[in-house]
Amino acid sequence: MLLQLLVGTLVSVINIGLHALVTVLAVAIARRAGLQPTRRPRLHLMGVMIATAVVLMISHAFEVLVWAAAYLGLRAVAADSDILYFAFVNYTTLGYGDITPVPEWRLIGPMTAMNGVLLFGWSAAILFEVLRKTLEHLGITEVHGYRSPEA
Rank of each mutant, 00 (worst) to 15 (best):
N90L: 13
T112Q: 14
G121F: 05
G95R: 06
P101Y: 00
L94C: 04
N115I: 03
N90V: 06
D82Q: 05
I99S: 10
Y96P: 06
L84Y: 13
A87Y: 10
P110Q: 14
L84P: 02
P101F: 00
Y96D: 13
Y85H: 02
G95S: 13
T92Y: 05
Y85A: 09
V77S: 06
G95M: 10
A79V: 03
D82C: 01
I126Y: 08
L94M: 14
R106Q: 09
T112A: 13
P101D: 15
Y91D: 09
Y85E: 10
I108P: 01
D80K: 04
L118H: 08
R106D: 04
A124S: 11
D80Y: 01
L84D: 14
A124T: 10
G109L: 02
T93L: 15
N90K: 07
S123Y: 07
F86T: 12
T92L: 15
E104M: 11
M114Q: 12
G95F: 11
F120Y: 15
T93W: 02
L107Q: 00
P110G: 06
T100I: 10
V77F: 07
T112C: 09
D98H: 07
G109Q: 04
Y85G: 10
Y85W: 01
F120A: 00
A125D: 12
N115E: 03
G97K: 01
F86D: 14
F120W: 14
G97N: 09
F86W: 04
G121V: 10
L127D: 02
T92G: 05
F120S: 02
I83E: 00
G97I: 08
V102N: 02
G109S: 12
